[in-house]
Design a protein around this nucleic acid. Structure first.
Length: 890
DNA sequence: AACTTAACGTAC
DNA sequence: GACGTACGTTAAGTTA
């Protein structure tokens, strides 16, 4: 086999890593994403290609020789962003620590170094792979040289170049000379683009050939331009031509990487905050497995119980047969009260044949022995995602886990909500503890992924590690919560919310299979009909659900005017289709098809699948640790985005029905976001409006259009409503004009007018952003925190995004605080009043209960008091109720 | 065949 | 690029 030499265009990948990888920074706030991206590219190269010979080339600051022949060379390039420049030394350090040969030469660009290396190395029995995405380097491609772009994983050999550019690689240079290169400010011949250049070079072979043939060309604009720009074309060629006579190792040994310096790498990774990359063996603390004890007899169980007496915290983790609560049964429980000892109590492990394995206490014995402790309200419990353990114990063991339910996952979420992973393994690794991965334990089991088949001694080690790890995390997080003044939020809101959410999930909500079945039939009939009509109109069959195929039909076959373009082609979204509707029959039909297809797949079919056959109810998951603002999220199914705005969508809601003899009570906060804004901004007009119970959108409209409230049209109110929403999101005139289909100028005028009317809002926004620049975080009313490291970066898009987030998060997050607080109040209040209402759903500003009609009045009072009194703002909080025999809005 | 990404659309 | 926060589906591309 011939040997391969890999030559990496380092500088190009620095830029691409910088732009491609989402911003990231280490503990000191230094940006690290370019380093991270670069590292990934290198790692991938090493893993996938395992190159024997490899070198990396970098540009080097200083006057590039090209400037001497053309001072404007790359003059249009903005200087390297600061947040990239600081990362460069680390990237070089990285290459150094990996022991990969690295070349940089003053005044020479990486491209040239690679060209020189190709020149010295080629012509022998070996293959050279230029690792780059830069089209300029394609010049180097020949029989033995290919270019590989690891980010697109595309290899360009001679044939591929010809296929793409329709010229031979050695003709590329001349081709580029005609085209120029706007990104490097290489002039070329104005008016000549890739297509023309390609044609000219194909006809005449070389740049010289083109100019020799000039006289015989027919008179045309093109000929004129070529004549006028002869100098520019030849100058361009000298600029683009790679300088392959620079000094690089002439022997292959100069391209031989050595084994990486692990110590240097680990140190570098640590400084960069790439904790997951730090080699575990170099930092992990051994887990004291000698403290792990298996509990298999009554006596052993008794000694566990004895040890629990006097404990001030009980850490718990349950092992089950499935991750899905509704199907899971208990396989074992691990417990600990300190880091010295942990116990694992197996109860449901199976033998190979599926029968219960020997040497386990009956689950009921274990549960009854532990019950006084697990149900004690004075003994706090700790777990990682303890909602799961609570649910399992309640559902399959009839045991109600009580006492404050501390969750190390939630603690981690509050402390650093922007973090990537909240998995126990990952968090422990950051604390120097490498846990056995779940997959590894479950790997060789008969039925894959079922913990019941894990051998008991292995299960013991795994499960004890989990409680040990959770406790270790808690010991680190509790003081941090105090430090960040978030302990109140944790103890007063998030912790009491855990069992409430678990109960909501366990309760579920009845969904009528019959109603869904009827809908499915109806929708399918219409979808089939539409599909037929659309394809008939198109004249051929195609996949309506494919934006790509649809784009071809609309904008190529039918030649309709295209609007917005996406990364991959024409946009075909609703907004575009709406504009096309008057011009052709098809777009309206597509719109209708889309609406129905969405309802059918996401809601009708999905919900039908998720109905629990025993109870007829669906059980969503409410996740407490997902959102950046503090809202809850809901999944499987997502009960927070059930359609409501359209007639068709509302039909889905008819399928959600109360259990026999009960009704739904929905309680939603009126304008909670804008009330929070009024409170924060202290804007006089907003405060006044809410204190006087005005219709805020109408009021805004009346003032914006300067008409009496009596003369308001619904259109005016709609505009005002859009602006009010937009304000909360930190909208621009562009966004508003898009939303309302008005010109940017008009939108601008509305916004200006708005800020004139609500000056306090404007000041508030400016202040929030200003403070965020200082702190690099924003907070909510209950001191929930969101880090915003990007608020100070140079990149305008990123920075402005952070600014909008700085405005939106305190509002959205405070609204989330308030409704969580309300939930924590309302559930015990209902119980106190002996009301049987069950909380089923939370939809950001709304709570849905299920209750007997006879208790409606009393329940409403309790709910109103809890919600409206959740938190005292400078404007009243108002709750509106709806009562119904389904979730449909009438 | 299993995975990822892009486009799209639903909610607040 | 341009209005914040989510979740989920489908098509189409990529990788094993």
């Amino acid at each position: 086999m011939t040997e391969e030499v890999y030559l990496v265009d380092g500088s190009a990948y620095i830029y691409r890593a910088y732009h491609a990888v989402a911003p990231l920074s280490n503990a000191e706030g230094m940006p690290t994403h370019a380093v991270f991206g670069f590292l990934n590219i290198l790692k991938r190269l090493l893993k996938d290609k395992q190159p024997k010979y490899l070198a990396v080339a970098f540009d080097m600051r200083g006057k590039v020789f090209r400037h001497e022949i053309y001072p404007e060379y790359k003059a249009n390039r903005p200087p390297m962003p600061d947040d990239l420049a600081v990362q460069i030394p680390y990237i070089k350090e990285l290459v150094h620590a990996m022991n990969i040969p690295c070349f940089e030469i003053e005044g020479i660009e990486a491209d040239d170094i690679i060209a020189a290396a190709v020149k010295v190395l080629s012509g022998q029995e070996r293959k050279i792979v230029v690792v780059s995405g830069d089209k300029d380097l394609l010049q180097l491609v020949d029989d033995t040289v290919v270019m590989w772009d690891p980010m697109k994983n595309k290899v360009m050999d001679s044939d591929a170049v010809e296929e793409k550019y329709h010229v031979k690689p050695e003709q590329l240079l001349d081709c580029y000379s005609l085209m120029g290169d706007s990104s490097d400010n290489v002039p070329g011949v104005p008016g000549v683009g890739p297509k023309t250049a390609e044609k000219l070079i194909n006809e005449h072979g070389t740049l010289e050939g083109v100019y020799e043939a000039l006289g015989s060309m027919k008179k045309s604009k093109l000929r004129e331009r070529l004549e006028e720009n002869r100098d520019k074309a030849f100058l361009s060629r000298e600029l683009i031509r790679l300088k392959d006579d620079v000094d690089v190792p002439s022997r292959l040994s100069g391209y031989l990487p050595k084994s990486p310096d692990e110590a240097l790498l680990n140190d570098l990774y640590t400084r960069l905050g790439f904790s997951s990359m730090v080699k575990i063996e170099s930092k992990a603390v051994p887990i004291p497995t000698e403290g792990f004890k298996l509990v298999r007899t009554e006596d052993e169980l008794q000694s566990v119980v004895t040890s629990l007496q006097g404990a001030d915290l009980l850490v718990i983790d349950t092992e089950t047969s499935s991750l899905d609560v509704s199907r899971a049964t208990l396989v074992g429980i691990s417990l600990c009260t300190d880091l010295q000892s942990s116990w694992y109590i197996p109860v449901g492990h199976c033998a190979e044949d599926g029968s219960l394995a020997a040497g386990q206490l009956p689950a009921s014995t274990v549960i009854e022995a532990l019950r006084p402790y697990l149900e004690s309200t004075s003994l706090p419990k700790l777990g990682h995602n303890i909602k799961y353990d609570y649910s399992i114990l309640k559902k399959s063991c009839n045991l109600s886990l009580k006492g404050p339910l501390y969750d190390s996952m939630i603690a981690a979420y509050l402390i650093e909500s922007g973090r990537r992973s909240l998995k126990l393994d990952d968090l422990c690794l950051e604390h120097g503890l490498a846990l056995t991965p779940f997959d590894q334990v479950v790997e060789d089991t008969k039925k894959e992924n079922c913990f019941a088949y894990v051998p008991i001694d292995q299960a013991c080690k795994y499960s004890c590690e989990d409680v040990y790890g959770a406790l270790l995390l808690w010991q680190s997080y509790e003081p941090q919560l105090k430090e960040l003044e978030q302990l109140e939020l944790f103890l007063g809101v998030e912790t009491p919310l855990v069992p409430i959410l678990a109960d909501m999930e366990l309760e579920g909500i009845t969904v009528s299979k019959a109603v869904l079945g009827q809908l499915e039939k109806e929708f399918q009939t219409e979808l089939d009909a539409l599909e037929g009509e659309i394809c008939a109109l198109a004249g051929y069959n195609f996949n309506i659900q494919s934006p790509k195929q649809l784009g071809v039909l609309l904008f190529e076959e039918l030649d309709l005017p295209h609007g917005r373009k996406t990364k991959t082609g024409y946009s075909t979204d609703m907004k575009v289709l709406e504009k096309l509707a008057p011009k052709h029959e098809i777009p309206a039909k597509i719109m209708r098809y889309r609406i129905l297809a969405k309802l059918q797949s996401t809601y009708v079919k999905k919900l039908k699948k998720l109905i629990d056959p025993d109870s007829g109810r669906v059980h969503t998951s409410f996740n407490q640790t997902v959102t950046a603002t503090g809202r809850l999220s809901s999944s499987n199914p997502n009960m927070q985005n059930i359609p409501i705005r359209t007639e068709e969508g509302n039909r889905i809601r008819h399928a959600f029905v109360p259990a026999k003899g009960l009704v739904f009570l929905s309680a939603d906060y009126s304008q909670i976001d804008l009330r929070v804004l009024a409170h924060y901004s202290q804007d006089a007009a907003l405060l006044h409006a809410f204190r006087n119970g005005e219709d805020i959108h109408a009021r805004t409209a009346a003032e914006l259009f300067a008409v009496s409230p009596l003369l308001l049209t619904s259109e005016m109110r709609r505009v005002a409503k859009s602006i009010n929403f937009g304000i909360v999101y930190g909208m621009s005139s562009f966004g508003l004009s898009n939303q309302l289909n008005i010109s940017r100028r008009e939108a601008s005028r509305f916004i200006e007018k708005y800020f004139h009317l609500y000056g306090g809002v404007k000041t508030f926004m400016e202040k929030v952003v200003e403070q965020a620049r200082i702190d690099e975080y924003v907070t909510t009313l209950l001191n929930r925190r969101r880090m915003l490291p990007e608020i100070n970066v140079k990149n305008k898009t990123q920075r402005e995004f952070a600014e909008r987030t700085a405005i939106n998060t305190p509002i959205q997050g405070s609204a989330a605080d308030i409704i969580k607080l309300a939930m924590v109040k309302v559930v015990p209040a209902l119980q106190r009043e002996n009301l049987s209402a069950r909380l089923l759903l939370q939809i950001h500003d709304e709570l849905v209960f299920e209750l007997p009609e006879s208790e409606l009045k009393e329940t409403q009072e309790v709910v109103r008091d809890s919600m409206e009194g959740a938190l005292q703002l400078d404007v009243p909080l108002i709750v509106n109720f709806e009562i119904g025999k389904s979730l449909a809005k009438s």
